[in-house]
Simulated scan of single mutants.
Amino acid sequence: MRRLTLLAFIAATLAGLGDDAQSQGFNRESFDVFVDARTGMGRPVYWYSVGTLRAYPSGELLARVEGFDTSMSDRPDPGRALARQFSRKIYIYRDAESNEILRERNGVAVEPVAYPYQFITYELVGDRLTTMVEQGSGARVQRIGPGDTMQARRIGDAYVFTAPLFLDIPTRGERRYQAFENYDFFIQAPGGASNPNQLSWVRYGEAPAWAGGGPAIMHLITWRIDQWKDVPASLRDYVETEAPLWRAPPTGLQEIRRLQSREPQ
């Protein structure tokens, strides 16, 4: 009975939202709203995250997670709905009980998730936002895309952008990196919230070796920070002392091409 009541409540809520909650195609306005929020407008921005890594299906808390994606962008042709994003990202694992940074577990080193760069191109093609992602270096440079599965919704005066990723990428040997990731960006209208740019992110895939492998779910709550000094000290101090490259995004395409040319260690 309670289940039926809950379903009825959800149905009534969705009906009340009307057409605003339906998935819509992109136009120039929604393209600009997403790109400006996601990448900033010529200055570095930091999408700071906190969350958890849990085993599936048990739900066991394997670690806490903290990190950010920092990026800046340019518009190479102002007459086109085309933008290029220059990013770095780093996420560290923390002990579930003490919250100390994990360095080792069960004799296995715990490494952060760290990308020296990601290069993403966004373009409006018809009513679809298409993406192309480049990452890796040397013979292992990967180009993922073009993808056009992102959805745009209006809920009142806010935008919700949903980007599902179904990843199946070859790695060393015969192994493949397989995971599902979903990004929900909530972009509030100007003046509608003290922090108008938010993101909920979830990943289902294999846990790191130090966490025992096997299926795991990572979930992060993320919001945009516009100045380095406002990144929480818990992460800012780590980056400044142990990962200074990640203090700021790549300066542009020239730096990214230089990083791509290096052979991986």
Score class of each variant (00 low, 15 high):
243 A>D: 02
148 D>A: 15
249 P>W: 03
149 T>L: 13
223 W>H: 14
222 T>C: 08
213 G>N: 04
41 M>S: 02
225 I>Q: 09
225 I>V: 15
111 E>T: 13
55 A>F: 01
30 S>R: 08
159 Y>G: 15
21 A>G: 04
243 A>P: 04
148 D>Q: 13
40 G>T: 00
116 P>H: 07
261 S>L: 10
102 L>N: 10
171 T>I: 15
2 R>C: 01
154 R>F: 13
31 F>D: 01
110 V>F: 09
187 I>Y: 12
160 V>G: 03
238 Y>K: 10
30 S>F: 03
112 P>R: 11
78 P>D: 05
44 P>K: 03
147 G>D: 12
82 L>M: 04
259 L>R: 14
129 L>T: 04
131 T>L: 14
68 F>H: 13
46 Y>K: 05
175 R>Q: 11
75 R>S: 09
83 A>D: 03
31 F>G: 00
96 A>W: 02
218 M>I: 00
260 Q>K: 15
176 R>E: 10
145 G>D: 11
1 M>S: 14
143 R>Q: 14
86 F>L: 09
228 W>Q: 11
178 Q>L: 09
61 L>A: 00
11 A>N: 01
101 I>E: 10
211 A>T: 01
91 Y>Q: 08
18 G>D: 09
227 Q>L: 05
86 F>I: 07
72 M>C: 05
263 E>S: 13
240 E>T: 06
215 P>Q: 08
148 D>K: 06
106 N>C: 12
55 A>L: 00
89 K>W: 02
19 D>L: 10
129 L>G: 04
174 E>H: 07
6 L>A: 06
19 D>Y: 01
264 P>G: 11
156 G>M: 08
158 A>Q: 13
87 S>R: 09
31 F>T: 00
132 M>G: 08
231 V>E: 12
29 E>Y: 06
71 S>E: 10
261 S>P: 04
15 A>H: 13
125 V>I: 13
101 I>L: 14
29 E>H: 09
83 A>P: 02
128 R>G: 07
142 Q>F: 13
165 L>V: 00
85 Q>T: 03
28 R>A: 15
115 Y>A: 09
100 E>I: 02
230 D>L: 11
137 S>L: 11
245 L>P: 02
40 G>M: 00
238 Y>N: 06
252 G>L: 13
179 A>S: 15
102 L>C: 11
90 I>M: 10
126 G>T: 07
38 R>W: 11
18 G>Y: 08
238 Y>P: 01
132 M>W: 12
190 P>W: 11
23 S>E: 04
26 F>A: 04
110 V>L: 07
152 A>P: 02
139 A>N: 10
103 R>Y: 09
177 Y>V: 02
179 A>R: 10
152 A>N: 14
9 F>T: 07
7 L>P: 01
127 D>G: 11
83 A>I: 03
203 R>W: 01
